[in-house]
Computed example of a mutant assay.
Amino acid sequence: MKITVKPITESKRILDKCRLTVNKEPSKNSRPSTVFLDNIYMSEHSPIREKLFDVYIEDIPYCISTHFVRHHQGIEKYVTTSRSDRTNIADRSQRSQMDLVSMSMTVNSQALINMSKVRLCWCADKDARKVMFEIVRQVKELEPELGSKLVPSCVYRGFCSEGNASCGYSREFLKNWRKEYLNGRKQIL
């Protein structure tokens, strides 16, 4: 399986949409500051939806692609067909859920945040989790401020929303992950 993440839009679009909402001209800077991006991704204000990525996954098992197809807000998915009249491959009734397909997703930053809450969870399918970890790794290289916000629900919320007392992540690992996620922010409670 090969996963490739590429940015479609520039982060400056986020800043310019924020500036528009307060009656300011577009920024002359080519990229927003790290502090701005860190804060806007953490707050999840609507302009983050302006940052788009193209995620291409080649040779993913069909059954794993369905985990990503379930996401629907801020994301468009395209999966190669398994129709025998289009592929010249065996009749569908003879195909396995493990047959390989390719898929492409056009996804905004908010959708990546939402997707990571579910797909990085220990309760998620382990192979879907591996795919999501690779997507996160590549996003961190492209947009570190967003990448650090791509966390499972337990890190995001501070507790397990699945009620899973036997999570496979160690408490120490989750504690460090949450610390990185909060990145020095003061907690209200």
Rank of each mutant, 00 (worst) to 15 (best):
R92M: 13
P61E: 12
H45N: 11
V151Y: 00
K51I: 05
R171A: 08
N176R: 14
D38Q: 14
S65C: 02
R178I: 10
Y156H: 10
Q138I: 02
A90N: 07
S96D: 06
K2V: 06
S170I: 00
T106M: 08
Q110L: 11
F159G: 01
G158L: 05
Q138H: 09
I48W: 00
E10F: 06
S82E: 07
E25D: 15
E58N: 15
I57N: 08
L120S: 09
I75Y: 04
T80R: 10
M98G: 10
T80Y: 08
L182I: 15
T81L: 05
N88G: 11
I64G: 01
I64L: 05
I64F: 07
E143T: 11
G163L: 07
R129P: 01
F36D: 03
L100F: 14
T80K: 08
Y156K: 03
K175W: 07
S65Y: 01
V35M: 03
L142Y: 04
R137Y: 12
P152R: 01
E141M: 09
T66V: 12
I113R: 04
T87G: 03
Y78V: 12
S161Y: 09
K186Y: 12
R19A: 08
F133T: 09
G163N: 06
S166R: 02
S148N: 14
K12H: 03
D91P: 04
S43E: 15
C63Y: 15
I3S: 05
E58A: 07
S102C: 11
K149S: 01
F68G: 00
L150M: 13
C18L: 08
A165R: 11
T81G: 05
C160W: 05
W122N: 13
W177S: 04
P7M: 12
M42D: 09
Q73A: 02
K24G: 06
A128Y: 08
P152S: 01
S161V: 10
N88D: 15
K117S: 03
V155D: 03
C121I: 09
D85V: 13
M105C: 07
W122Y: 13
C121H: 12
I14T: 08
C123E: 15
D91M: 13
S102F: 02
N176A: 14
F68T: 00
K28W: 03
E10K: 15
A111R: 02
E143Q: 10
P26E: 09
R157T: 06
S102Q: 05
F133C: 10
H67N: 10
R95T: 11
Q110R: 08
H71Y: 07
E145W: 00
Q94L: 13
E180K: 15
D54S: 12
E162H: 14
G74M: 04
S43A: 15
R157Q: 11
L20A: 13
I75W: 03
E180G: 14
K126Y: 12
S102M: 03
K12N: 09
K149M: 10
R119A: 01
E141V: 06
L182N: 13
K149Q: 11
A165E: 15
V5Y: 04
V79D: 02
